[in-house]
Every structure is written in structure tokens, then in C-alpha cells.
């Protein structure tokens, strides 16, 4: 698996991708800094809604992961090198796992770094709150990664579909439609933040902490299994 992990790292760390990730990851940090330094400090609820929920959990994190995760397999499908991997005696999960870990290794530092720095600035070095933000976003990172890696295997338009999902589902519908909130990764990230630090994120978290943990584990497992299954049943180009 080490070989495939290194291969994945190499494939996912192009110069432009790193630049785009750096810019995206910087946005919430800069935004938080500007707000805190502003003439009218926002209410905590406002900050949680705008910067953490909408921006970080609902936009920046999924955008970075869709740019990385969906091409973990997507590029190999596109340039027809996937057969190099699938025509090996490795069990299929041993092909999927390095792709998922590679995505986490590349996208993770940017997203977690962004979450940590944003929380650090916004919550005035409150360690519990910072840890809650970082952990909640981290679990969201796991869910988004397993989802977008799978998406890269099922469609050649994974980035387009992923962007639609982020904008329409996570960004729009899940914020307004009650029923859809239970199918939103962003909502579970917020619920986890609230679970880790009950003093905060109460107005944004609409899902129970225990349910969020169960759903997070389920989402990661289901999409990992679906990726493995897809790799077994698809026609490899």
C-alpha cells in the first residue's frame, strides 16, 4: 500500500492544486481576522453561522476536498492508468485505502490548519473551542473525502457534480429545508463541534452529537465500501 500512497501523493500535489488550496484555506482565517479586528465585533452566533458553518464547514472544506478527492481516482480513470492498479493481485480495498489516505494527507493539513487558525483567532485562544472546531471539521474532512473519492470513481464529471452538491445541497438546501439537514455533512460537522464544546455552536447544530458520531462512521464506511465495490464491478478504461 505504501507504493500506491506515494503515487497518490505525487499525483495530488501539483503546483496549481497547492496554490488553490492555500488560497482557499486562507480565506476563513483572513475573514475571521478581519471580523475580529473590525469596529463592530460580531456576535458569537453570527460568527459561527457565517465563518464556521457557511464558509469553513459548508464551502472551503468541501471545495478543497472535491478538488483533491475526486481526482484521486478520477485522474487515473481519465488518463487510463487505473488498469495498472486494478490488474494487480491486491484486494480492492488496498487500492482504495491509499487513495483515501493520500487525499487526507494532502487536503488534511490545509483544512485542519485553516480550522485551527480560524478557531484560534475567533475564540480568542479558547483551547476547547479551537479543539472542537478542528475536530468537527476533521470528522467532516473524513466524510467528504470518502464521498468525493467514491464520486471520482462513478462519474467523469466528479468535480462538476461535486461543486453542484456543495453549492446546492450543502450551501443552499441544507440551510433552509429541515429534512435535508439530516443528509448534510456540514450539519454533522457542526453537531460534532457542539458536542465537543457544548458552550458553542448550539444555534447552528441541529443534530444530536451521538447521532452525528454514528452517521460520520456510517458515511465513511459506506462510501469506502462503495468505492471498493465500484472498483470490482466497473469497466476499467
Amino acid at each position: 500500500m505504501g507504493s500506491l500512497f506515494r503515487l497518490t501523493l505525487h499525483q495530488l500535489t501539483g503546483k496549481w492544486r497547492l496554490i488553490i488550496m492555500t488560497v482557499l484555506a486562507s480565506l476563513p482565517v483572513v475573514f475571521a481576522w478581519l471580523i475580529v479586528r473590525g469596529t463592530r465585533a460580531p456576535f458569537v452566533d453570527e460568527f459561527e453561522a457565517i465563518v464556521l458553518s457557511t464558509m469553513l464547514a459548508g464551502s472551503i472544506a468541501p471545495l478543497i476536498i472535491v478538488a483533491i478527492g475526486s481526482v484521486a481516482f478520477g485522474n487515473e480513470v481519465e488518463d487510463r492508468t487505473l488498469a495498472n492498479l486494478t490488474l494487480s493481485p491486491l484486494p480492492r480495498w488496498q487500492i482504495v485505502l491509499p487513495k483515501v489516505l493520500g487525499t487526507l494527507a494532502v487536503a488534511g493539513p490545509f483544512i485542519l490548519g485553516s480550522a485551527f487558525a480560524t478557531g484560534f483567532i475567533a475564540f480568542n485562544r479558547d483551547a476547547t473551542a479551537v479543539a472542537a472546531v478542528t475536530a468537527g471539521i476533521g470528522v467532516g474532512l473524513l466524510m467528504y473525502t470518502s464521498f468525493f473519492v467514491w464520486l471520482g470513481l462513478v462519474t467523469k464529471q466528479a468535480i462538476g457534480v461535486g461543486l453542484l452538491y456543495i453549492v446546492l445541497w450543502e450551501g443552499f438546501f441544507s440551510g433552509f429545508v429541515e429534512g435535508i439537514r439530516f443528509l448534510s455533512i456540514r450539519q454533522y460537522s457542526l453537531a460534532l463541534m457542539n458536542g465537543f464544546d457544548p458552550r458553542r455552536f448550539a444555534s447552528e447544530a441541529h443534530v444530536d452529537f451521538t447521532a452525528a458520531v454514528i452517521v460520520a462512521v456510517t458515511v465513511c464506511t459506506v462510501f469506502f465500501v462503495l468505492s471498493t465495490r465500484r472498483l470490482r464491478t466497473m469497466d476499467v478504461p
Binding site: L7, H10, Q11, D79, R80, T81, A83, L87, S88, P89, L90, P91, R92, R232, T233, P237
Partner: peptide, 23 residues
């Protein structure tokens, strides 16, 4: 089909010439 254990006995070179150019 879907028999990875068998692929250890098989060598396949497809018509597509794409390689990992960075490697």
C-alpha cells in the same frame, strides 16, 4: 473478472500509452 488473485499470473499491456510521466 473480479479475481485479483489470478492477476498475479497475468501481465497486461493495454494499447493506451499513458504513463506516470513524473516517474
Amino acid at each position: 473478472r473480479d479475481n485479483p488473485a489470478l492477476y498475479g499470473r497475468l501481465g497486461v499491456m493495454s494499447e493506451h500509452e499513458t504513463v506516470y510521466s513524473f516517474m
